[in-house]
């Protein structure tokens, strides 16, 4: 790591001011992503403002929904009773990610800011438009087995790595922030950006804007929700493909469906067309297979990752079948 200063913020507003004052300052949460990337010289900051002890660490569950403080640790959220019963997809997604140690450290806010596992981004020296704008993309014609097939551009095909974010994408989440321009809320769908020709800009946040909470509305149908992750080993690995799904079924007919994919998109990938294709249908294997086809309709493979397209279709179909089999 290059040298940096460290301060412990005594409040969100102070933290914002401290980061705003230095262009290369960053907020420090659990550190599981940031410290890793700084050790690789993929990120360099001369000041870390530690926000991990700010009192944004509550899960507040009411009839209207759940407010998740940005500092809630992944493990605490995953095992929270309200999350397990009302939003099982969220708990399952969290527990499928990383290791128990990392989940004890990693915060919800940090998870939203999690950066890609693309090896050309992480190695600190390859051509990477995300790390060094306009330097090129070594992944386009490199080893791209792990890379995205949805939302890619000629400038970046890096996969978004989060599991939690895939679940949040189907739960109508909103992100609460405080920043140099004051407080605001950002719909989750608008939080992560597509790479386009500026893959270095990954989120809607301004420099010095701090995530304070994630809000989930009450979603009665979310009790029938599920996260399925497919990976190279049984545990402690990033997704090749994953699917977060929810189904509202009444009188044997699908009233509402939610589908998002992980491991295949440059951002957490909501599959709205696939959702629409299920409404009014009976929950059958054929309908679920068709939803999988619809979810991957726009997929663009590279040399080594074409296998992800049929794998993701089957991941969607199997996740939907598992959700349909849950008690509603």
């Amino acid at each position: 790591m290059t040298p940096f200063d460290y301060v412990r913020a005594d409040g969100p507003d102070a933290a914002v001011k401290q980061v705003v004052a230095r262009p290369t300052a960053a907020f420090l949460g659990g550190g599981t992503g940031l410290i890793d990337l700084m050790k690789l010289y993929a990120e360099r900051h001369d000041l870390l403002v530690d926000v991990s002890r700010l009192p944004m660490d509550k899960v507040e569950a009411t009839e209207k929904g759940v407010r998740i403080g940005a500092n809630v640790r992944n493990s605490d959220l995953a095992y929270h009773a309200a999350i397990r019963t009302r939003f099982p997809v969220l708990s399952e997604a969290l527990l499928s990610g990383a290791s128990p140690q990392l989940r004890n450290m990693a915060t919800v806010g940090g998870n939203l800011m999690q950066r890609t596992r693309c090896p050309y981004f992480r190695d600190g020296h390859s051509a990477c438009n995300k790390r060094v704008p306009k330097s090129g993309c070594a992944a386009l014609d490199g080893v791209n087995r792990g890379h995205a097939v949805l939302g890619t551009s000629d400038h970046c095909i890096a996969t978004h790595p989060s599991d939690l974010c895939v679940a949040l994408a189907i739960l109508d989440a909103t992100v609460r922030t405080t920043g140099p321009k004051g407080e605001r809320t950002i719909p989750f769908a608008d939080f992560h950006r597509l790479p386009g020709d500026t893959p270095d800009r990954e989120t809607a946040l301004d420099h010095g804007e701090l995530i304070t909470a994630v809000d989930l509305p009450a979603l009665p149908w979310a009790t029938r929700s599920h996260y399925l992750k497919v990976r190279d080993r049984a545990s402690y690995e990033f997704a090749l493909t994953s699917a977060a799904v929810a189904l509202e079924i009444a009188d044997g007919v699908i009233k509402q469906a939610r589908i998002a994919l992980g491991g295949v998109g440059t951002k957490p990938w909501r599959a709205a067309e696939a959702e629409k294709a299920l409404v009014g249908k009976k929950p059958t294997p054929e309908a679920f297979a068709a939803a999988g086809d619809a979810a991957l309709a726009g997929a663009v493979p590279r040399q080594h990752n074409a296998f992800k397209i049929p794998l993701a279709k089957r991941t969607v179909a199997r996740a939907l079948a598992a959700a349909a089999a849950m008690p509603g």
């Binding site: 200063d5 412990r8 913020a9 401290q18 000041l47």
Partner: peptide, 8 residues
Amino acid sequence: GGLALGLG
């Protein structure tokens, strides 16, 4: 122990 002075 947490008072951030100076840099802010």
